[in-house]
Amino acid sequence: MRRSEISIDLSVVRDNTERIVQLIGASELWAVVKANAYGHGAVLVARAALEAGAKALCVATVEEGLELRQHFHRARIIVMGAVASADVQQARQGRLECMAYDEVSLRILGRERVRIHIKINLGLNRWGLSELPKSLPASAVGLFGQFSHAHSDRQLTLKQLDQFKSQAHEAPGLTRHVANSSATFEVPDSHLDAVRCGSSLLGLSLSPSLRQKFPMRPALRWASYLAHTRRLSPGEGVGYDATYVAPAPMMMGVVPVGYGDGFSARLAGTTVLVGDEPALVIGAISADAFAVALNRPIPTGTPVTLVGDGIRLEDHLEFAHMTNWELCTALPTDQRRVYRSSLLDGQESRTTACT
């Protein structure tokens, strides 16, 4: 029996992609597959998104872009993170499009004739020029920005959009893209020439209100099983340092998944499903196991759902106060830890390390 299994339903990725393509009309959808497509598998998710109408792929590093280039010879691949000067030649040879975020990067990328997307700082204050340079390299093809509060402050997002548009008027020939997943759904005026969506393709959303208005199906399911059960007497502790103490006679179970498998130690106290019954994670999570409180004796071997069947990745994120997609980007690809498979139209199509 496998300790745990992560499955990615690629038909769900396709369906979510098609919904966004319909929503944005004449704008292009660019699929963001950085960080191994947020732990879902960059190559498989990229392929599903391209098949469903995405026009380009966005990554964070040259290394990620070059990996995708091996699988997608004709696709546009855009590196949204900083490119070290030592990697510029590789980026050009790999036909990657790259971000220029200051005068130095603009000059280096332009000199090497790399296709450039110029980033304007809209208030996130990480990468980006404060204003558009008066002279642009001949290889400049795009102009973009990144909202700082797209999922939480509509008025500020609209202000940043106006700021971006005023800059874009100075470079009418460049492709304009500024919307992430949240802005794509919440701020239609931000669609411009292209939108950059990653989490929404996977059925992930930071905002509960957004999930209600635009329900996208989650593509990822993570399951394990009940490996052992034990009856506790009042006062007995569970796990290292006995961070949970039985308040009364109770049943508990052990699930063979831990933080070494990507189930963060910060998830102690979250909820999973044992069979179809909610169960509280109790005690400290160890490297390869966690414990659950059981309402009644349950047979070993009973399936345990960590993500799926109504248990969302976002639920765990909100419980543990984890940022963005910190949990799913940490999911391992080593099949010695977690068995991974992809599904196509509900049928397992192949197993993969999902890199």
Rank of each mutant, 00 (worst) to 15 (best):
L158I: 05
S200H: 06
G198W: 00
F147P: 00
A219C: 12
A168Q: 03
R154D: 05
V195H: 03
P215Y: 10
Q212C: 15
S152F: 08
S181G: 07
A179F: 04
P208F: 06
D193S: 11
E170F: 14
T157K: 01
V187M: 06
H191F: 03
K165H: 12
S152W: 07
L174K: 08
S166E: 08
H149Q: 06
R176C: 05
D193N: 12
M216L: 10
T157N: 04
F144V: 05
A171M: 13
S166Y: 15
S207E: 07
Q146G: 08
R176A: 02
P172D: 13
Q146D: 13
S199T: 09
Q212R: 14
H191G: 04
L156M: 15
T157W: 02
D193W: 08
L201G: 01
L143F: 07
Q155A: 14
P208W: 03
P172N: 15
F144I: 06
A168S: 12
D162R: 15
G203V: 04
K213D: 11
E186V: 10
H191K: 10
L192R: 00
S200R: 01
E170Q: 15
Q160R: 08
L201D: 01
S200Q: 06
S209Q: 12
L202E: 01
G198A: 15
L202R: 00
S207C: 11
S209W: 15
S209M: 13
S209Y: 12
V178M: 09
A150F: 04
R176V: 03
G145N: 03
H177W: 05
F185M: 10
D153W: 04
C197H: 02
S182R: 07
F164P: 00
D153V: 11
K159H: 14
A168E: 03
T184A: 04
K159G: 14
K159S: 14
K213G: 09
F185V: 05
S182Y: 02
A219N: 05
S205Q: 13
A183D: 02
S200V: 11
R211K: 08
G145W: 01
S199F: 03
A140D: 00
D189S: 15
L156E: 07
G142D: 02
